[in-house]
């Protein structure tokens, strides 16, 4: 009874948002944690070791040959210190994209999980936030581990590296929110493969393994429009300590990405499950 009375008194004004968001994303996240207990742990563990292996193989192996590399701000750093922040950005991207695309696609189309959730008092935004928060939590745990490895190997050149942790969460949030939006438009597994088709070249060319200056001007411009380049630059600035005002642009880029992703995800979840 009191629920209904309260409802009426609060009036219809904030209703459009209240229909989308019940402020209970926590329960969706808690569900995810409980379900993780029954997941395949090798996938979870390998997610941590993948970038570590890349770092050891390329940072030290290749690093012997390369010597030092200069960053965007002109600082000379060892090859290991150059690629480590990039690998951190890549793993943030991969984790967030995997959780928000394949995982979400499966739940959306095969297990009808969201259909069940949306017949409770949850709104589509609760579901989106809950799922994304879970992806971020996982990303943050990986990133902490990786930053510790970097510290041990002496690859964190500045105390600003501590800020890499919130930065990873921001980057992961952006990719997760955007990935979920794209996934909500996908209908078949074939379409899902396009995601990999975009991710791989982005991984290889976004100034991950060598500076952007090796490319001709116009290719540089294209790459600078891509999210992973912003992620790599942001992380590299923080772990090497070579930051300038450019950092704010990167942050802004991801904030916009988050908002655009959330708007489309919410719209689509609403259309798909509350049509």
């Amino acid at each position: 009874m009191s629920v209904l009375e309260r409802t009426r008194r609060s009036g219809p004004l904030p209703q459009s948002l209240r229909a989308l968001y019940a402020g209970n994303a926590r329960s969706v996240m808690a569900r995810g944690l409980l379900a993780t207990k029954s997941t395949n742990w090798t996938v979870v563990v390998s997610g941590f070791f993948e970038p570590v292996f890349y770092l050891l193989a390329m940072g030290f192996g290749l690093g012997e040959l390369v010597g030092s590399v200069s960053t965007t701000t002109g600082q000379e750093v060892s090859y290991g210190a150059f690629i480590a922040p990039a690998l951190l950005a890549v793993s943030a991207m991969n984790g967030a994209v995997y959780d928000s695309t394949w995982n979400v696609f499966f739940k959306m189309n095969y297990t009808k999980l969201y259909q069940g959730m949306l017949s409770t008092s949850l709104g589509p935004l609760d579901v989106a936030f809950g799922e994304i928060a879970l992806a971020l939590l996982r990303g943050a745990v990986y990133a902490t581990g990786f930053l510790i490895v970097m510290q041990v190997l002496g690859l964190n050149l500045s105390w600003l590296a501590i800020l890499a942790l919130p930065a990873v969460v921001l980057i992961a949030f952006a990719f997760a929110s955007f990935g979920m939006a794209i996934t909500s438009y996908m209908k078949t597994f074939q379409q899902m493969d396009w995601i990999n088709f975009v991710m791989l070249p982005m991984f290889l060319f976004s100034a991950t393994f060598y500076p952007l200056s090796v490319y001709p001007e116009w290719i540089q411009t294209v790459i600078q429009a891509l999210p992973l380049w912003h992620a790599v630059e942001l992380m590299r600035g923080l772990t090497t300590g070579a930051v300038d005002a450019g950092v704010l642009w990167h942050v802004l880029y991801f904030v916009v990405m988050i908002l655009v992703g959330l708007v489309f995800t919410t719209k689509r979840l609403r259309a798909l499950f509350l049509d």
Partner: peptide, 23 residues
């Protein structure tokens, strides 16, 4: 206008079971 408020007072048994198979 009041989807969440209404749903909080309802129990729903859909035609096809949609139990959470991961739990």
């Amino acid at each position: 206008d009041y989807g969440p408020e209404i749903r909080s007072q309802l129990g729903v048994v859909p035609q096809a079971d949609n139990l959470d198979v991961e739990l």
